[in-house]
Design a protein around this nucleic acid. Structure first.
Length: 642
DNA sequence: ATTGTCTGCCC
DNA sequence: ATTCTGC
DNA sequence: GCAGAATGGGCAGACAAT
């Protein structure tokens, strides 16, 4: 399979231009010779099987793939584990297993389409016995691998290809390939197209990225490119109500000054950053509501009540609307107060099938009642709308933010208080005050958004028009924790050879225990990794089993002799099924969610990252479980779950 | 019927 | 989600 | 400053094992 050779070449260089060249050449030859292979090649290159909105899951991961490798190569589990540990890559490990293997009869060689079809086949299989069948199917593919194909098949199956090129680079390569193909077929290959084509290629790349951001649908895009080139794609790939648009994202900032300098001159608005799930809500002309997640999964089934709330709030869908929003958990019994993310995440993902549309909602406002519940017993939600991407069936992305917000306000009415609202925002310049108010109102922080010029909605962009600020981004504002490293795992990929992540614990003076709070793998420099790994592994500071005074639900391959304290920052504390910090000192359930059989739960830290080593502290000076319990309770009061 | 493991997705 | 690194 | 990579906590759901 000629794609494996391209991947091999991609992974062999760190140069971005060279990678672009390799992929573009690969796509060019497919375009010229077997265009029907282009789409599967594009999918495989960006490590996808299908678009997210199709809901296609292979349902296999490291564990099942490991079984398949064992089955296909006859390797001993212990041997494969050793190879995986030393190479830091299951694909490399499998490649090594396969290298010492000779087959009696070689099966049919793999093809791009054949592999992609096989992946779709994995996704289609299900029900009793499906795991065994999937493992067998993967083993069959692995047996047919030649040369470097094993590495790439395994990396594909575990969705971690590490070629150094992902979706954006793949799209750029695709655009370049199509642009050159178009030029060279017009000039019948007589002109050295690469020379004259550079600006044209850059334009094609911008156009193709735009296409994908407006209409993230690779089959549609690739089909249009083959049929009508870049121009054809631009015509085809447009915003349509009912089809997802890549959401615009916000860039993090470390403080007010940083935020302002990123935003640049000009006016802006600050908006609360609600801690829920992103929701792109499409209301079709016939009233049908579809909700897409940030990664463009169709989550309508999870949020029928949210869909109903939008139906009720929309005055008239006209030819269709697209609303950008955050869905948050709320407590109707406490005046629809916001509840923490962890509550929202307990919602069943597959709601009952029921039709929600505007006509039903209109009926409700004129007397008949529509029960806006999700699945029985699930937390109530509120749709917090903050932007409008299409109005009366037509995209309004190019309008300035203030105009989009005005249209959003005109198009909707908070019919049922607390189930649909517009995001709280203001145009004042007192960002820090607004940040504190937002946090007091159970929000994560704020997002500042440019107004006027440069405030268009740019799908897929994480640029400077939206800047987010959270308490824990600001040095000195958020909580930090002084935690003790108690164990670790062997790093993968670029962190092979280092210990990563590291398990960290707080100190419980009452029991004399170190209780785990989180794993951490962020915030360390490469130099720190080298030093730290040597400190523990070569410095004779590891143990066979965890010391008796260590308490955790985790099982590390490497346990430390606990001896130092690291400062760790995080966003907030959650109740954990595996970490034991402050166990018994905090309530055992998250609000109304189900308990866990009386085992009790400890606290864990959300979004942990390393700040510095506290050389001045010993393990008994670490943050105590009592301090953690106190922080958790304070936070619960703020969040309305106490 | 219950429990444990794995996956995929949210942040 | 957060962070670091090479281009 | 972008793009890529390596990972964080934690949930529901799908299967397998008991």
């Amino acid at each position: 399979m000629h794609l494996a050779a391209a991947f091999e070449a991609l992974a062999a260089t760190t140069k971005r231009l060279k990678k672009a060249d390799i992929l573009a050449n690969c796509f060019r030859s497919l375009l010229a010779l077997t265009p029907e292979d282009l789409l599967p090649a594009v999918f495989l290159s960006c490590n996808k099987v299908a678009e997210n909105m199709e809901g296609v899951d292979m349902g296999v991961g490291g564990s099942q793939v490991t079984s398949a490798i064992l089955q296909a190569t006859g390797t001993k589990p212990e041997q494969l584990r050793r190879l995986n540990r030393s190479t830091g890559d299951l694909g490399d490990a499998a490649q090594a297993c396969k290298a010492n293997q000779r087959l009696l009869a070689s099966p049919k060689p793999l093809t791009i389409r054949g592999v992609h079809d096989a992946l779709l086949g994995l996704a289609r299989d299900g029900g009793t016995g499906s795991e065994g069948r999937k493992v067998a199917a993967m083993a069959k593919l692995l047996r047919a691998c030649q040369g470097p194909e094993t590495r790439w098949l395994v990396r594909t199956l575990i969705r971690n290809i590490r070629t150094g090129a992902t979706l954006l680079s793949v799209l750029d390569a695709l655009a370049a390939a199509v642009a050159i193909h178009t030029l060279s077929s017009r000039s019948q290959g007589r002109v050295p197209v690469e020379r004259i084509a550079a600006p044209r290629i850059a334009a094609a790349q911008r156009a193709v990225r735009d296409c994908y951001n407006l209409r993230p649908d690779l089959p549609l895009l690739v089909g249009a490119l083959i049929e009508g080139g870049v121009e054809g794609a631009v015509e085809t790939c447009t915003v349509r109500v009912g089809m997802p648009v890549r959401p615009m994202l916000a860039k993090p900032s470390t403080g007010v000054e940083d935020l302002l300098s990123t935003l640049g001159d000009g006016s802006f608005l600050v908006e609360r950053k609600y801690d829920g799930m992103r929701a792109q809500v499409h209301v079709a002309a016939d009233g049908q509501v579809t909700i897409y997640s940030r990664k463009l999964e169709n989550t309508t089934a999870q949020f029928h009540d949210a869909a109903a709330a939008v139906s009720a709030a929309v005055r008239s869908p006209g030819a269709g609307l697209i609303i950008d929003a955050e869905i948050t958990a709320v407590d109707p019994a406490q005046d629809f107060r916001l509840l923490p993310f962890q509550m929202l995440s307990t919602r069943p993902r597959k709601g009952q099938q029921q039709q929600q549309d505007v006509s039903a909602a209109l009926a409700s406002s004129s007397g008949t009642t529509v029960e806006p519940s999700g699945a029985p017993g699930s937390v109530a939600v509120c749709v917090v709308a903050f932007d409008l991407l299409a109005y009366n069936g037509a995209p309004c992305l190019a309008l300035p933010l203030e105009d989009r917000r005005r249209l959003l306000a005109e198009a909707t009415v908070a019919a049922e208080a607390g189930r649909f609202i517009l995001a709280t925002a203001e145009t004042g310049e007192q960002i820090l005050r607004f940040l504190h108010e937002s946090i007091a109102a159970s929000c994560e922080g704020v997002i500042a958004k440019r107004l006027g010029r440069g405030s268009e909605y740019v799908p897929g962009d994480r640029g400077s028009a939206w800047v987010k600020l959270k308490r824990d981004y600001i040095p000195g504002l958020g909580d930090t924790f002084d935690l003790v490293p108690i164990g670790g795992w062997y790093g993968q990929g670029r962190k092979a050879g280092w210990l990563s992540p590291i398990l960290l614990a707080c100190w419980d003076p009452d029991s004399g225990e170190l209780q785990s709070v989180c794993r951490c793998m962020s915030g360390y420099t490469d130099a720190f990794y080298k030093e730290m790994t040597a400190f523990y592994l070569e410095g004779n500071r590891t143990l066979e089993r965890p010391p008796s005074y260590v308490s955790t639900g985790e099982n590390c391959p490497v346990w430390f002799n606990p001896c130092e304290v690291w400062e760790i920052r995080g966003a907030d504390l959650t109740l954990s099924p595996v970490h034991t910090a402050a166990l018994g000192k905090v309530p055992a359930t998250v609000g109304g969610s189900k308990g866990n059989g009386g085992k009790g739960r400890g606290c864990a830290l959300r979004f942990p990252r390393y700040i510095q080593t506290r050389q001045d502290k010993g393990i008994e000076d670490a943050t105590t479980s009592n301090e953690i319990a106190e922080m958790f309770c304070k936070q619960a009061v703020r969040q309305g779950t106490s």
